[in-house]
């Protein structure tokens, strides 16, 4: 298992990069842009084989940031391609990420039913 301080360092660094992007580049960058950028970057790095070493190094520090979600999608796709060929390229990602996506939608909906926006 990965030591906690490594998760802290790797996760903190990934978030720090996001903060620098927000503060030092165009002011039009919104949280939505950051999320899209991280999931895409994670997927690409994973495709190049660069994200897996980061996960081995930082554990949750690499999987909890949204780039880890992109990595999960790519890993799923690559696994799918290995097992089913072309079909796997389409089915692999959703299979791998199913729990996270479903949880976000279900908890999102339930929260909306139970709570009101406080502002």
């Amino acid at each position: 298992m990965v030591p906690l301080y490594m998760a802290f360092l790797v996760g903190g660094t990934l978030c720090l990069i996001g903060q620098l992007i927000m503060d030092l580049t165009k002011p039009e960058i919104t949280p939505g842009h950051i999320l899209v950028g991280y999931i895409s970057a994670g997927a690409i790095l994973s495709g190049l084989g660069l994200y897996k070493p980061l996960v081995e190094l930082g554990g949750a520090g690499a999987t909890v940031p949204l780039s880890g979600f992109g990595h999960l999608l790519t890993e799923g796709v690559i696994k799918g391609v290995g097992e089913k060929g072309l079909l796997g390229a389409f089915s692999g990602g959703l299979e791998a990420a199913a729990a996270g996506i479903a949880a976000a939608i279900i908890f999102g909906y339930i929260t909306a039913v139970l709570f009101n926006p406080k502002g």
Binding site: M22, K118, G119
Partner: peptide, 13 residues
Amino acid sequence: RFPTEQGVQPSPS
């Protein structure tokens, strides 16, 4: 702007 409960960091301007 954003949904009121979304986490955003307001810029100083």
